[in-house]
């Protein structure tokens, strides 16, 4: 385990070093994040006239959901996109062979190889929005609810990672996967709004098939003290299930790679 920790520290210190080689990008990134968040808030405000709600959620509560969505979006740009997007390059250029010959788990290497600090401001902004929304919505934070929300955020992160990794792993077969990733991103955008804003059929889809609900709506409900225990357990179970499927699929993909590649 010690070796994995040391490797992780090295991974990330080199990742920061790479970013420092490209400082100008950070500014563009910041501008994009600010514009994007401004646009999202403007769009959300269109749903709220005086005394209006969206699926029974008040403006402040919807801000919490929007904040959580921003956090996960930032996580995707900091962690998922730079790492999982590189898998396709490894396959195309044949450098996956080097990864497979390292005495370290290949999924660990491919998933945590780098970090892109450019997404960190977005995560910070997301949390700021979440806190602002929570205060406006009169959330009373207790130790158990804080603990629960952290666990649910972890579960949500695991679900998002697993979905993304599943798609990235198909690059063993397909030359390009970023358009599949775009489909995932388009569908994930549904997490910008509370689950109740959708018709019942979509709610089911966003809970069980593409569990966006567990990324944003459920953690917000935990903070608001409205989360039901079965929903929390379902979230944890889905996180474990999705991660196991992603892991199994990767091992299957590797078996295919090593028996069919030339």
């Amino acid at each position: 385990m010690g070796r994995y920790w040391r490797t992780l520290r090295r991974f990330w210190s080199t990742a920061v070093a790479v970013q420092l080689e490209y400082q100008a990008n950070v500014l563009i990134e910041l501008l994009a994040v600010a514009m994007s968040l401004g646009g999202s808030l403007f769009l959300l405000s269109l749903f709220y006239g005086p005394d209006q709600t969206l699926g029974g959620w008040s403006w402040a509560q919807a801000l919490m959901v929007q904040g959580l969505y921003t956090v996960f979006d930032g996580m995707a740009s900091t962690w998922l996109r730079p790492n999982l997007g590189a898998i396709v390059t490894h396959v195309r250029e044949g450098t996956l062979d080097f990864v497979l010959l390292k005495p370290i788990d290949s999924q660990f290497w491919l998933s945590l190889r780098t970090l892109s600090p450019g997404g960190l401001p977005e995560i910070a902004l997301g949390f700021a929005l979440l806190i602002y929304g929570s205060v406006q919505a009169g959330v009373v934070l207790t130790l158990p609810s804080l603990f629960t929300v952290l666990v649910m955020l972890l579960a949500g992160g695991l679900i998002l990672y697993s979905l993304w990794f599943l798609i990235a792993a198909t690059s063993i077969w397909f030359v390009k996967t970023w358009n599949a990733t775009e489909v995932l991103r388009a569908l994930l955008a549904s997490g910008r709004y509370p689950l109740n804003a959708y018709p019942p059929a979509l709610r089911l889809l966003f809970t069980l098939v593409l569990p966006v609900a567990f990324l944003t709506t459920v953690p917000a409900q935990v903070l608001l003290g409205e989360a039901a225990a079965p929903m929390l357990l379902a979230g944890l179970a889905l996180a474990v299930l999705f991660f196991s499927v992603a892991r199994a699929f990767w091992l299957f993909a590797l078996r295919f790679y090593t028996s069919a590649s030339s």
Binding site: L46, F47, Y48, L54, G55, L187, Y198, L202
Partner: peptide, 25 residues
């Protein structure tokens, strides 16, 4: 196959439609 996925990645208007249809606004 790739272009089919691109077409599918344009579903955002449908997601927005479902939010707008149920909204008070």
């Amino acid at each position: 196959a790739e272009i089919a996925l691109w077409a599918l990645s344009g579903v955002l208007p449908f997601i927005m439609l479902s939010v707008w249809s149920g909204s008070e606004a």
